[in-house]
Amino acid sequence: MDSPTADIAAETLLDLIPYGEEIDPLALSVLAANLQAVVGLRTCIRPFRDHPEEAFIPTRYQFDAVKVLDDLCREKEGALFRMGVIQRDLCIPILTYVYGESQLGGHTAVISLHRLHHIDRQVYYERGAKIAIHEAGHLLGLEHCREPGCLMRFSKQLEQLDLLPMRFCPACEYEIARLLKKAIQNRH
């Protein structure tokens, strides 16, 4: 059995890269499962690695998301898409914080679990999965969507994020499927 389609199906499309050993392994499993189920990205959890120190901004006590993306970009090995996961707070120079950052239509993304805390662990995992799926949508090239029940909608607050179902609207879902197919084709 070495038909090309079987090859593609078995190939890892997204590497989930945990920065710092304090990350809850169960959270990583939930992220991977949802990325696979909702976006259709076969996901692999890579070993823990150290915090990206060169991205640390001492005056803000936060990590610069753009620099983390640079770090992930430099990597030669690995899957088509790479998503960093960090337990510490992320920001970009102009914004006080971000839940995640990604290259629109690019290859790398990073998300932070720092601000997603909830007394109910289940809610915490779901928030992480929603952020990861949203950033994966950007990776494939999707912009924000105005539909109320779509994960590509920009959530101004966590409460809004909590109200979203774990899926895209039909229009985004269609685009995801199309763009994913295209991304895989271009790779081969």
Partner: peptide, 17 residues
């Protein structure tokens, strides 16, 4: 005049459509 600000802001606004 700061390139990082230009890049960050335009990336964010582009995602907003």
């Amino acid at each position: 005049d700061e390139e990082t600000i230009c890049v960050a802001l335009s990336a964010w606004l582009t995602k907003e459509g």
